[in-house]
C-alpha cells in the first residue's frame, strides 16, 4: 500500500529563476531558502515519488483541447521555459503509479485525461527539478495539471475532490511508495492584466492560514468572481493548493514562508502539510 507522507504548497513564479542564484539579492535568496526547505523536508520524509499539481498557462494546451484535469503517464520532459542552471531534459516519471492513479480514478468517477508524452511548463518543472529530484530517495515525479489558469476552469470543489481521488489511488496501490503531493501555484497575481505586479497580502495569508489549519471550507466557498476580484486571474491557481489539501484531508501544517515584493508577479506562499492528523 502506498502512503502519502506529506504535502506542500509553493509558488512557481518563473521570474524568480531567471536570475542566477549567485547574483540574487537578499530577498530573492530568502525565497530560494524556502524552496530549499521544501527540498530538504521531502528528503527527510523519505519520499520516493512526488506528485506535482500545476496549472497550464495557455502554453501546453491550446483552445482546441483544454483538459479539466490531466495526468502524465508516460515520458516527461521540461520545463518548457529556459532558466539558468535548470535542465530541460527528461524528468523521471513513476509510470506505474501514474497509470494506477488514472485507472483507479476512472473506476471511481474521476475521468482523468492522460498525456502519454508531456513537456511540462514551469509550474510542474520547477518544483520537480528544484525540490523533488535533488533528493536521492525520489525516483519519480508525476505531473498533474488542473484547469486552474484557463477557462473553462475546474470547479474548486472538484479540485479538492480530485486530491481525495489521488489519495485513494495511492492507498489502493500495491506498492510501498512514499508519496509527497505538491500544490504549485502563486496566490494573488494578475497575469497579463493591467494590475500585474499587485499583490493582496491579506488574501494570500488567508489562503495560507486555511492550508495550515487544514480547513478548506473558506476556499471552497469562494466564487471565481470573488477570487479574480481579490487575487487576480492568477489567484484562480489556488485550486492547485486546494487539490493538495484534498489529498491530505483535515491535516494541519506549518507556514514555511511568505514573500511579497513589488518586483515579483505573485504573492509567494510556502507551507507544509503534515501527514499525521
Amino acid at each position: 500500500m502506498g502512503t502519502i507522507v506529506g504535502g506542500f504548497v509553493l509558488p512557481h513564479e518563473p521570474g524568480l529563476f531567471f536570475t542566477p542564484r549567485e547574483a540574487a539579492k537578499p530577498e530573492l535568496l530568502e525565497v530560494h531558502g524556502a524552496y530549499d526547505k521544501v527540498r530538504d523536508r521531502i528528503g527527510e520524509l523519505g519520499a520516493t515519488t512526488v506528485i506535482v499539481v500545476g496549472a497550464d498557462h495557455y502554453v501546453l494546451f491550446g483552445p482546441q483541447c483544454l483538459p479539466n484535469f490531466l495526468i502524465g503517464v508516460g515520458d516527461v520532459t521540461g520545463p518548457y521555459e529556459r532558466f539558468p542552471g535548470i535542465g530541460q531534459d527528461e524528468i523521471p516519471n513513476n509510470r506505474e503509479l501514474a497509470r494506477h492513479i488514472l485507472d483507479h480514478g476512472r473506476a471511481n468517477g474521476f475521468d482523468w485525461a492522460a498525456a502519454k508524452s508531456l513537456r511540462v511548463d514551469h509550474s510542474v518543472g520547477l518544483p520537480a527539478r528544484i525540490c523533488a529530484l535533488p533528493n536521492p530517495s525520489v525516483t519519480g515525479v508525476i505531473p498533474v495539471y488542473l484547469a486552474s489558469g484557463v477557462e473553462p476552469l475546474i470547479p474548486i470543489r472538484r479540485a479538492y475532490e480530485l486530491g481525495g481521488a489521488i489519495r485513494a489511488a495511492v492507498e489502493a496501490s500495491g506498492t510501498d511508495e512514499r508519496v509527497v503531493v505538491i500544490g504549485s501555484g502563486g496566490i494573488s497575481h494578475w497575469v497579463g492584466m493591467s494590475r500585474m505586479g499587485d499583490h493582496n497580502e491579506a488574501f494570500d495569508r488567508m489562503v495560507l492560514d486555511c492550508v495550515v489549519r487544514g480547513d478548506p471550507a473558506p476556499l471552497l466557498a469562494l466564487s471565481d468572481t470573488e477570487i479574480v476580484h481579490q487575487a487576480g486571474n492568477g489567484g484562480l491557481e489556488i485550486r492547485n493548493l486546494v487539490c493538495a489539501m484534498g489529498a491530505m484531508p483535515g491535516r494541519t501544517g506549518d507556514l514555511i514562508a511568505y514573500h511579497d515584493q513589488p518586483d515579483w508577479v505573485a504573492g509567494l506562499g510556502f507551507a507544509e502539510i503534515h501527514a499525521a492528523a
Partner: peptide, 27 residues
C-alpha cells in the same frame, strides 16, 4: 480574450517585447 494569451502574444511578437509597454497600453 485571455490575458495569458495577450501577454504571450505581445512578449513573443511585439517589436519591443516590453512588459512595461504592454501594461502601459492596458492601463
Amino acid at each position: 480574450v485571455s490575458p495569458l494569451l495577450t501577454m504571450g502574444f505581445w512578449m513573443m511578437n511585439h517589436p519591443g517585447k516590453s512588459r512595461t509597454d504592454y501594461l502601459d497600453q492596458l492601463r
